[in-house]
């Protein structure tokens, strides 16, 4: 456990003494701020329209919170590869991988350390993005529960994808390849349910189950179900397992 924390600490330190973490955080906040602003503006004009027509007041959760969460979901998809591409590939590139492998630590400890490190950086990012719904809570009256469960969903979703990205990074010594492969993999995941309605049957069920978008949906609306949590945890464990295997196989060449 100590080795895991030492490795994780080093990951976080490396991320924050180089510009990487700041650039990714800044990019994420810029994008999420832009989405939030646009959504609020849309809500505002809708509000004035509803007032004119003496309609019911539009729902803040439905008009701002839910689309905002979906926007973050998509943004994170692009940022995860940037966070994970360097993790193992860079070690191989600069020769420090030899140091890790010849130290009395196991591949599992290396993977957990790396994972914990990169999850911490992502957690900082998500924490900052929580400022936006906080603004809603302070100045308006949204349903609070879906906001929390929505961020829980984003945290699970990000962790699962970070684990996959880590596994890809463990397979190559090129950061570029690690980044591109992870991005393609995550995008395929993102749209994997698309052909389901045409296919129908068992296969459609499988594709629908594999799609992360289907699993964040209920959580974004404030419904926490075991199926969704288990889904994200199993993707995460699968990614970590693959990463460990990739490290164990390093001398097969």
């Amino acid at each position: 456990m100590r080795a895991v924390l030492v490795l994780a600490g080093k990951e976080v330190r490396s991320a924050f003494v180089t510009p990487l973490a700041y650039i990714v955080c800044a990019g994420f906040l810029l994008l999420s701020g832009f989405f939030f602003f646009t959504l609020l503006q849309g809500f505002n004009s809708h509000l004035s329209q509803a007032a004119l027509l003496r309609d019911d007041c539009p729902n803040l959760n439905q008009w701002v919170v839910l689309p905002f969460l979906h926007a973050l979901e998509l943004t994170l998809l692009f940022l995860v590869p940037i966070l994970t591409m360097r993790s193992v590939a860079e070690e191989k590139q600069q020769g420090t991988f030899e140091l890790l492998v010849t130290s009395p630590i196991t591949p599992l400890q290396i993977v957990l350390g790396k994972f914990l490190g990169v999850v911490s950086v992502a957690a900082v990012m998500l924490l900052f993005a929580f400022v936006f719904p906080l603004v809603l809570i302070v100045f308006s009256d949204p349903e609070i529960w879906p906001i929390f469960s929505g961020f829980l969903a984003l945290a699970l979703y990000t962790s699962a994808f970070l684990a996959l990205g880590l596994a890809v990074s463990a397979c190559t010594r090129s950061q570029t390849i690690a980044g591109v492969v992870t991005l393609v993999l995550l995008l395929v995941f993102y749209i994997i349910h698309a052909p389901a309605p045409k296919l129908g049957g068992r296969l459609a069920e499988v594709l629908n189950y594999l799609s992360p978008s289907n699993h964040v949906d209920l959580l974004f609306r404030g419904v926490i179900t075991g199926v969704d949590i288990v889904y994200f945890l199993s993707v995460m464990l699968f990614g970590l397992f693959l990463a460990v295997r990739a490290l164990e196989a390093q001398d097969w060449r």
């Binding site: 030492v6 080093k10 020769g95 030899e98």
Partner: peptide, 22 residues
């Protein structure tokens, strides 16, 4: 090629190695 992390200070690096070496 010495397995160094360019972003760490010399002291931090040796400390890190000491820790992972147990």
């Amino acid at each position: 090629t010495p397995p160094l992390y360019p972003e760490l200070r010399v002291e931090e690096y040796v400390r890190f190695v000491a820790r992972i070496k147990g």
